[in-house]
Design a binder for these strands. Sequence first.
DNA 1: ACAGCGCACTTGCATTTTGCAAGCATGACG
DNA 2: CGTCATGCTTGCAAAATGCAAGTGCGCTGT
Lengths: 104, 104
Amino acid sequence: MTDEGDENGLAAALGLIGQRWAMLVIRCLLDGPKRYGDLQRELGVPTNILATRLRELQDAGVLYRLPLAHNQRAYALTERGLALRAALEALAAWGRTGRNSSPS
Amino acid sequence: MTDEGDENGLAAALGLIGQRWAMLVIRCLLDGPKRYGDLQRELGVPTNILATRLRELQDAGVLYRLPLAHNQRAYALTERGLALRAALEALAAWGRTGRNSSPS
DNA sequence: ACAGCGCACTTGCATTTTGCAAGCATGACG
DNA sequence: CGTCATGCTTGCAAAATGCAAGTGCGCTGT
């Protein structure tokens, strides 16, 4: 019964985290919670894009804000965000292959 | 060593297949070679975008053109493209979760 | 032969997303 | 009170994306 509607699993995933920089931000946060400036410096992402992505990913339930001090807060992954580790590492592993093996 | 060496892989992967529709096209081709019109109908992707993506993915070594008849050709994944199956299925599996969950 | 059809694209233009640079708000600190 | 670091927002240009219509090309029917 319930035929495989899995054709949309990917579309659903990309609808949530398919925007530019989104997966990079998530992967960066897999190392642990980080602050806005850290993400900016580590990824080199434009600041307005970063702010937008963080809002969207928070709405998507992938990460949440973690207040620290007066002007400092951190961003951390939710369980749903952490569940992306396997998928993102698979993608990263693929990206690492296809480097020209040897510059003969 | 001169450069970071341990570069992300994820960034490399997204540089190749991170464009809109690219992963959907690849996932569609995991079922086997298909023709232009098939991809268009199955995915609902705009025709100019599809043409652009197919060219880019071909350049990326992910798929190749397979001539059939006079005005018909098929697109099929290379080994590099087929190697994406695990990653895309992991992403699709993640996308399938969280549809019917209890709001925390 | 030639009009018409289906297939695989291309082209023109509007809309949306992305990027760069600069500015704003806030609280700490001198 | 002025300056600083941090975390954003805003203005505007460039690029990507999307829609619709058009192009080329071989085949088919008459």
